[in-house]
Amino acid sequence: MTHRIDQTFAARRAANQSAFVAYIMAGDPDRAASQAFLNALPDAGVDIIELGIPFTDPMADGIVIENAGIRARESGTTLTSVLDMASEFRKTNDTTPIIVMGYANPLHHMGYVKFAAAAKAAGVDGAIIVDLPPEEDGDLRDAFEVHDLALIRLATPTTDAERLPKVVAGTKGFVYYVSMNGITGDSFAQAGFVTEQVTRVRDAANLPVVVGFGVKTPERAREVAKDADGVVVGTSIVKTLHEDGPEAALALIRSLADATHTPR
């Protein structure tokens, strides 16, 4: 449902702030612990949740998220249980958008029409499917349209001026700008380059632009938030949760959210 997404960005924009987007891997390390962590995210300052769907072959992810996916799968996480987590979350929160993020095959295997209906019923707002470029996402987009779910596209430094209109056409909710050529957890691109790119994508899309890949620290989040409508952090949250536990991860999230929310 795009209205939760739209309202979230509108509220932050009204306060002259950027939104904080946190990625977690659903089911890491197990269902109960992951559910508790998910439920705690809004109070820690998270505006939008990206809920990772584990996949055996995560080609765009670094080792931290790949290993989180292995833990999640070993604890029995499936696409259905990821949606169950969203349902559970919705029992106590009806405002924070949940975007599921992952790879095409689990959705394709369930069937796009069935998945869209199940996601809608679970209170999911949209999806980012890394290996469905505009050329291949038509069937899923059609299924999402029926339920007013947002299929969020990725724009990257290789998305040139000729291609950008094709990428942003048909995207809903926001555009996810991948800050550098690489995989999740790599180092960040030059700040000036990102400013320029965010402006370029926002002008083409007329939608909020969130920036992800490579944001690890509050300092970097604050810097990116000056230009971007949202800042995504994933790898360092997943890493801290695994190595130091949920309290440490929530503390990190609070510091990243505060930095992101610094008024411009």
């Binding site: 095409a104 469905l132 470029p133 291949e136 724009a155 290789t158 998305t159 990428v167 991948v178």
Partner: peptide
Amino acid sequence: GRYVAETLMPP
């Protein structure tokens, strides 16, 4: 088909 991340579509 071409099921790749957006970064790889242009190449």
